[in-house]
Design a protein around this nucleic acid. Structure first.
Lengths: 183, 183
DNA sequence: TTCGCCATGTAATACGTTACATGATTGG
DNA sequence: CCAATCATGTAACGTATTACATGGCGAA
């Protein structure tokens, strides 16, 4: 999967592993993430598979950079992936829900503290998505106007981030009230 | 993580790997899943670590069963895990959103077909959670009434499943309208 | 001089999926 | 007789995380 994300970004422009990591962290981080180690090793593998080519650039006074560029094979791989619809739902793994599921034997105060803490985290994310994310896209769009169509899809994913966090906060608020009323 | 789920279920009663797999699939499947291979190997590892003990039962006319029972060490491990609050948000990995993010260069019809398909899948899940899940818990509760407190938490997680799928369906509906209006 | 950012990588480990493999019983 | 369910496991592979490792530049 990370392979396709890298192909997707390199389809916009050649980039280094470092830049790809930064791009990931500031654009798709609310629905996908990867550590730099995984990105670097995946890029190497992709190069071995002929999906990208790299160029090692030495410049004085600056660190060396390895810039990756998409090949035709890489572009084809990306298209092939995008053109066959996803026919299953992405599996969810939510640790908090596992913990809630088994919380009957825990101290009420312990459960409550955890839910309140989680609500703060999700509330913070919600504010972040509402304030920053769309501005971020508009800034990119101002710099590269031919990405109008892309921006529509990017904003769709941001809307999902907002909707998800809003739903999560509401659920937590309800859960907190319910635990408070217990016994 | 799967380790704690197994500990959690074995804390209710001794079970075989097969039964644990079934229990997972009918209770926590909307926020966690595991293949039987992972369950069997994890149980073996847990036994090596002294968290569970197993007994191999041969009965005539029936397949052999290996029943796992929680040890005091296992109970302690479960408690320790439950008592230290989760201080981070669970990371999300949603393949559909990755695909939407990079959909600007796709055929409108291809994107639309995918979104409609996904909406059907999520709508189906939503109906399932609304109809079956709580009934399932009430049935279990009728059989073992001392699980009233547990049932409250179980239902909380079902509410999250419903809220999540409802949010997802709404988002997809909006996204579909937006793609339809494009160009 | 110390911290953060730029920049790249490898190694070990952990976790998770898919495929392989077997065999009995029950119901249609 | 065939399919489904019960029941258990191993092996290979793929993916992801954590830790180890290095080094320069600029700002406070």
């Amino acid at each position: 999967m990370i392979k396709y994300i890298l192909l997707g970004f390199l389809n916009y422009q050649p980039m280094t592993g470092y830049e790809l990591k930064q791009t990931l962290d500031t654009s798709v981080s609310h629905f996908w993430h990867a550590h730099h180690s995984q990105i670097y090793t995946t890029l190497r593998q992709m190069e071995a598979d002929g999906l990208v080519v790299s160029e090692f650039l030495h410049s004085e006074g600056q660190p060396d950079r390895r810039v990756y560029t998409l090949t035709d094979a890489g572009r084809a791989e990306l298209s092939a992936w995008l053109n066959q619809s996803l026919t299953e739902m992405s599996p969810i793994k939510e640790e908090l829900l596992v913990r809630v599921f088994f919380s009957a034997r825990r101290d009420k105060s312990s459960v409550l503290a955890e839910l309140v803490l989680q609500r703060e985290l999700h509330q913070k994310k919600l504010s972040l998505y509402r304030d920053i994310s769309t501005n971020h896209i508009d800034k990119e769009l101002a710099a590269v106007p031919e990405l109008v169509k892309d921006a529509v899809f990017w904003k769709m994913t941001v809307r999902m981030g907002v909707a998800f966090e809003a739903m999560y906060v509401d659920w937590l608020t309800q859960a907190i009230h319910e635990v408070e009323r217990m016994q």
